[in-house]
Design a protein around this nucleic acid. Structure first.
Length: 477
RNA sequence: CGGGGCGUAGCGCAGCUUGGUUAGCGCGCAGCGUUUGGGACGCUGAGGUCGCCGGUUCGAAUCCGGCCGCCCCGACCA
């Protein structure tokens, strides 16, 4: 008997680690906390990358690439930025067989190199806006790591834009948050809340940080993408100036925005069930797997041939399909394995089906098996996949909604957020002391504030003074 | 860095308290046969410097000392 998967509901971290390992999505590499993504996990990331990149292009962005290493002193120019990142930065002090005169840092993010370069690229308002993005890896020294959700090295995309006016930059940061929300919901099937970060949760060096927050199956929130309005902070720190249309010298306004392989962790944690992964069809490397069933060699020949015909028909409609014709495993084994790997649709094809001119179609998000006329399978597949995509989103949304609470009193909030988790919404006075009190007592932090600040019309749930913001609290990864 | 735990076959573990033949078990792997509609079964077989170094002893996976590595919880964080 093969080992069964741990129950997700009973042992969440164990479930997560087992699913990731067994689905062969990733494993630890040589360095602690580094991430070596195996083919299957990379295929998921690759599709997510494509979905994002298409949207970046559609919004006028171009891809560039900046160096992995840059002088440490570059990082030190923006005060908040260096303070925020220095504990997490790896520094190279030795190279070419000798101590380096100038220590180099491995990028934890690229504002510093990019803005020191932008100084040379920007002279006139006619050079603006600069709308660049780069796909790369970054390294942040983490005390504790968790596959995909927090690895010291991770792959991401970071957009860095420069604008002539504040309004334009703010608009850009909001637009890109919108792109993230759309990709999270439509591609990853993860419902997210979009909002602003409180000052204490802001990106180091940002004026405003916008975020999308998702709720994981264990009640913890996941910051899934961020978009920052950087004001003129980096332009000033890196002495970037331009002449505006009026002939006056000014500093450009900046944004940066990033989404990482953490999202792959979010997909696992949002959609997975006790049988393993459930991948959204938009991202699944294999969308449809065909499992042939046979008892003899003659049946095998016949069934596999039919499976190949079906595969061809599916491929012709643009579906990513695969025939699992491995002879060393029985059907039951294959069913379980593909469920573990999260394949959205499985087709079972045996002698009885061929005789009846049908196939058995099973959706990963539904319980039963359906008999479908053989010739109808391929034409119906796009709709079936759309259905699985919608099911996943709806499952996640109803879970999120069921675990979102309006705070009625401080006691039930702190008790609830610490035990069951979930999102807890209530008024906040805006004082950091209240934020810290809650986080010290419950580990929960303010995940987001509404995009537009508005009077909640209620008193702060912590101190009882008049509320200034409607805050959403949760524990998080 | 604080608190716990672990290192024995590719993976998961037992054995250690009370030292004693060729160090076991399950899964996986290889060969053969029977099987194949929800994680198959039988037979045969391959696979180990018991984390490393030193000590005690006639004899160490087991006892003692040192070192190394890993995992979990917390602090840091996308």
């Amino acid at each position: 008997m093969a080992d069964r998967l741990p129950k997700q509901s009973e042992d969440f971290p164990a479930w997560y680690i087992e699913v990731v390992k067994r689905a062969q999505m990733a494993e630890h590499g040589l360095a602690k906390g580094s991430m070596v993504i195996k083919a299957y996990g990379y295929a998921v990331w690759e599709r997510l990358q494509k979905a994002l990149d298409d949207r970046f292009k559609a919004t006028g962005h171009e891809n560039v690439y900046f160096p992995l290493l840059f002088p440490a002193k570059l990082l030190e120019k923006e005060a908040d930025h260096v303070e925020g990142f220095s504990p997490q930065v790896a520094v190279v002090t030795y190279g070419g067989g000798q101590e380096l005169e100038e220590p180099l840092v491995i990028r934890p993010t690229s504002e510093a190199v990019i803005w020191s370069t932008y100084a040379n690229w920007i002279q006139s308002y006619r050079d603006l806006p600069l709308l660049y993005n780069q796909w790369c890896n970054v390294l942040r020294w983490e005390m504790r790591t968790r596959l995909f959700l927090r690895t010291s090295e991770f792959l991401w995309q970071e957009g860095h834009t420069a604008h002539a006016t504040s309004d334009e930059a703010v608009e850009e940061s909001e637009r890109m948050l919108g792109v993230y929300k759309e990709v999270a919901e439509d591609v990853c099937a993860i419902p997210v809340l979009a909002g602003r970060k409180s000052a204490s949760e802001r990106f180091p060096g940002a004026v405003e940080t916008l975020t999308i927050e998702a709720l994981m199956r264990d009640g913890k929130a996941l910051q899934s993408g961020t978009s920052h309005f950087l004001g003129q902070n980096f332009a000033k720190a890196y002495e970037v100036t331009f002449l505006n249309a009026e002939g006056e010298l000014d500093h450009p306004w900046a944004t940066s925005w990033g989404l990482s392989t953490r999202m792959v962790g979010g997909i696992i944690m949002t959609h997975g069930d006790d049988r393993g992964l459930r991948l959204p069809p938009a991202l699944a490397p294999v969308q449809v797997v065909i499992v042939p069933i046979y008892r003899s060699e003659s049946e095998q020949t016949e069934v596999v041939a039919a499976a190949r015909r079906l595969h061809e028909a599916l491929t012709a409609t643009g579906v990513r399909a695969k025939v699992d014709d491995r002879d060393q495993h029985r059907p039951g084994f294959k069913f379980s394995e593909w469920e573990l790997k999260g394949v959205p649709i499985r087709i079972e094809l045996g002698p009885r089906d061929l005789a009846a001119g049908r196939a058995i179609v099973v959706a990963r998000t539904k319980e039963g098996k359906n008999e479908v006329a053989f010739d109808d399978v391929a034409p119906q597949m796009t709709d079936l996949l759309r259905g699985v995509q919608a099911d996943l989103f709806e499952d996640a949304r109803s879970f999120r909604d069921a675990n979102t609470h309006e705070i009625s009193d401080y006691g039930s909030f702190t008790a609830g957020v610490a035990s069951e988790g979930g999102f807890w919404v209530g008024a906040w006075c805006g004082d950091e002391a209240c934020e810290e009190k809650v986080s010290a007592e419950t580990k929960a932090t303010i995940r987001l504030l509404p995009l537009e600040p508005s009077d909640p019309g209620a008193n702060c749930i912590v101190c009882g003074r008049p509320g200034k913001e409607l805050a959403t609290w949760a524990r998080s990864y």
